[in-house]
């Protein structure tokens, strides 16, 4: 497979991540390849259990231990293969060059430490910095994420903040060391739609200002359409389609992408008309087939061969990749 090697900050090739469980080895990410272009936003969209979060945790090497393992492939970040780094080397990168924000800020923040202390920790983990400068940088960052009265907020605890404010604090912590890559895992899923719009705009503004790259993980195609430059669609542990955002929404090629786009209710659809639903359920990890994993739900005629032979991931037009199952890509 050949993905264009130009100006990508992160290049992932054939990543395989698995979990050892009582029921055997479960491959959550099964041979995933993509690039994150410098200064751009790559969206990863998929349903629960598709492997989008496990992909993110593989990049930051935060897989649950000892069960989670990267079994194969490479994750090249600015030329270094993160898979082969030692834990100490990875710690230096994490939080300074690559940062991550999570879905639920209340569980990601420490409830018994003030916001200020948590921000200071993010700085001091990576460099020796005089107290006054730590404070100045913290206040500056709080202003950047548009938290009103930052001096006062630094002395508050997470529970004293609203959901939107907590997510702003998380973003401040993630960006305080000016990372080159931000991984945002469902950053707005727990928030109201009006607050979601604020947070997405904030991330986009800071990205422009700081010139960082972003991986945005979400299940919401609306969020993808609003903020991403490129999109990878994941299904059952694999990327089934990847393209520029305009290309993907205008010309989806894989039956899963098409099905998702057709099934969601839109503001301009006729009220109370039946939706074009995708039949069946998302397969659980124990049911993953070696071949195409969506063929059975595609509603199209398929044979056992399609479920056993893995389709190739090919570039069908410039920058537009698809898992070329003869059933799902007609």
């Amino acid at each position: 497979m050949s993905l264009s090697p130009t100006s990508a900050i992160l290049e992932i090739r054939d990543l395989v991540t698995a979990f050892d469980t009582d029921a055997g080895r479960m491959t959550a990410v099964d041979g995933v390849s993509f690039d994150v272009p410098r200064g751009k936003t790559l969206g990863i969209v998929g349903e629960s259990g598709c492997g989008k979060s496990v992909t993110a945790f593989s990049i930051t090497r935060l897989l649950p231990q000892p069960h989670g393992k990267i079994l194969g492939g490479s994750i090249r970040f600015e030329g270094r293969d993160l898979v082969s780094l030692s834990l100490e080397e990875m710690q230096k990168i994490r939080g300074s060059e690559i940062s991550m924000i999570f879905q639920e800020p209340m569980t990601a923040l420490n409830p018994v430490q003030t916001v200020g202390r948590q921000l200071a920790e993010a700085i001091l983990l990576h460099e020796d910095c005089p107290k006054a400068e730590v404070l100045a940088r913290s206040i500056d960052m709080m202003k950047k994420v548009r938290i009103p009265a930052p001096e006062q907020r630094l002395n508050e605890y997470p529970h004293q903040l609203s959901g939107g404010m907590r997510q702003r604090v998380m973003i401040a912590m993630a960006l305080i060391n000016k990372p080159k890559l931000l991984i945002a895992d469902e950053p707005t899923t727990a928030l109201d739609v009006t607050v979601q719009a604020q947070i997405l705009e904030l991330i986009a503004d800071l990205q422009k200002e700081m010139g960082m790259s972003v991986i945005l993980i979400t299940h919401d195609l609306g969020v993808i359409a609003e903020v991403c430059d490129e999109v990878a669609v994941m299904y059952a542990g694999r990327i089934v389609e990847k393209a520029g955002v305009f290309d993907l929404f205008a010309k989806p090629r894989h039956a899963y992408t098409q099905g998702l786009l057709e099934s969601i209710p839109r503001l301009d659809s006729t009220p109370k008309s039946l939706l074009k639903a995708i039949p069946g359920n998302v397969p659980s990890i124990a049911e993953f087939k070696p071949g195409c994993r969506f063929a059975e739900r595609s509603g199209r005629v398929h044979t056992e061969v399609h479920l056993t032979a893995r389709p190739p991931f090919t570039e069908i037009s410039p920058g537009h990749f698809v898992e070329q199952c003869p059933i799902c890509v007609a």
Partner: peptide, 11 residues
């Protein structure tokens, strides 16, 4: 509220 809804169409 209407304005805040993300529209699934980048165009």
């Amino acid at each position: 509220l209407l304005d805040a809804i993300p529209v699934p169409d980048p165009a």
